[in-house]
Structures are given as structure tokens and as C-alpha cells.
Amino acid sequence: MALKWADIDWEASEIHIHRMESRVEDDNGKLRVAICEYTKKKSPAGDRYLPLSDYEINLFQVVKRINEEAGYSDGDFIFCDKEGRTKIREVDNCIRAQCRRAGIEVKSAHDIRRTVASKMRRKKVEIEDIQWYLGHNDEATTRTYIMNNQGKQKTSRQIVNALSEMNGSDVLMGTQNSRNEKSPEAY
């Protein structure tokens, strides 16, 4: 929610992630929502340039047009409404409400990050690349984001196939292994 139009490089088709919305303590010791000019825990991994697909570029152009037509503006922030910059809590509440309205499992904005990470991994994107994309400092954090949401049957099939391809396992399954031509009776 801290993205600004200046963060998008339209020619290079990328977006610069380098600030975030957070809760910070004001002069009276109260927490308030504010934009921080850094990412999570001031992590160097958080400051990154992410590629944008044509689909994403088009979405940003639609948001820009909607903002202009509706007169929404708050400095250079991308996501705003008549009240100004949109806060993450508002977006999160909207996502949850739309899930309930659609009759699907309720998700949060953060759940969407997990879904993206999981789908990237299923498409064989390397863990290190997903880690970079999410802005994580370490691989262990990224691994907690990757869920198996492909279903029990597909997972079971993959496990059985992997086990049968292991050294010698196909012999035990009753098929010949090119590395070990012994039949099951030979054991």
C-alpha cells in the first residue's frame, strides 16, 4: 500500500519495492499507521526491483485511469480512494468480504503472498528466486510460505512416482531397473 507511481519503470516493466506501511509510535507513545521509507526490519533483501508482466502493467494502467476518472489522489500513491491513500487494513477487509460473498475460503492479503509463493514453486521457480521476490532474508522464512495446495491424490501420485524412481525401488515394485537387472526372485 506504500507503492507510488514513481516506483514503476514503465519502459523496463518493473516496480521498485522500497517502502512499506507500518505501525509506528508517535510522540505520545501511541501506535499509528504510517509509511516507512524502508521495508520489513530495514532488511536489505526487502529493497528490490520486481519484473512486471504485461498483465500487471495493464492492471496498473487501469488503476491509474480509475484514480484519474474518480479524482482519487494522495500524493503519488497508487492505491487511494476518496479518503486518500488506501490502508492495508481496508484492503484486507475488502478481500475477506469478497471471499465470503463468493462463498470461498476467506483469505487475507498476506495469504495471497503465500499463494503466489506456492504457485511459483509448483511452476519450478527456484527457492532462492522466490525468496528474492518476496524480499526475505533467509530461505527458511520463504519455505514457510510455500504450501502444498495441489490435493492429496496428486501429492500421493508424485510421492509414489518419486519412490519408484529411487535406486532399486522399481525392482521392488516388480519392474526392471536399467542399473540393476536382477529380478525380484534374485533377492
Rank of each mutant, 00 (worst) to 15 (best):
S53Q: 07
H110D: 05
D74S: 13
S13N: 15
R114Y: 10
S43E: 08
E56T: 08
S118F: 10
S73I: 12
I8Y: 05
A117C: 01
R121L: 09
D7Q: 15
E11M: 00
A109S: 13
S118C: 09
I112R: 05
V116E: 06
A70I: 02
I35Y: 06
D54T: 11
Q61K: 15
C80A: 14
S108T: 13
E68R: 13
D47P: 00
N28Q: 13
V62Y: 03
F60V: 06
I88M: 03
D26F: 14
S73D: 10
Q61R: 14
I57G: 00
A70D: 04
K42H: 03
F60K: 07
R65F: 05
Y72M: 08
R122N: 06
K40N: 05
A34Q: 01
S73M: 12
S13Q: 15
E56K: 06
R122P: 03
P44G: 06
R114P: 02
K40H: 11
D81S: 11
Y38Q: 10
Y49A: 09
K124D: 11
V125Y: 10
N67H: 08
V62L: 10
R122E: 12
R32S: 02
G75P: 01
K124T: 10
K4I: 02
R19W: 12
I57M: 14
A117G: 00
H18S: 04
L31M: 11
Y55L: 07
E83T: 09
M120F: 03
N58Y: 07
V24Q: 13
K124S: 11
D7Y: 15
R23K: 14
F77D: 08
I57T: 02
P44S: 07
T115Q: 09
K40D: 04
I35H: 06
K124W: 06
K30H: 13
A6G: 15
A45E: 07
I88Y: 02
M20E: 15
V106G: 07
D111V: 09
V33G: 01
Y72P: 04
M20R: 15
M20P: 04
P44D: 09
V24T: 12
S22E: 14
N93D: 11
I17W: 13
A70M: 12
E68P: 02
W10E: 00
I15C: 00
K119T: 11
K124M: 10
I88G: 02
N93W: 01
D111L: 08
Y55A: 08
E90R: 13
C80Q: 11
Q98D: 08
I104Q: 02
E83H: 10
E37D: 09
D9S: 01
P44F: 03
S118I: 08
D74T: 13
S118L: 07
K42T: 01
I66K: 12
E11N: 02
Q98I: 11
N28I: 03
G29V: 14
I78E: 01
R32C: 05
E21I: 14
E56F: 05
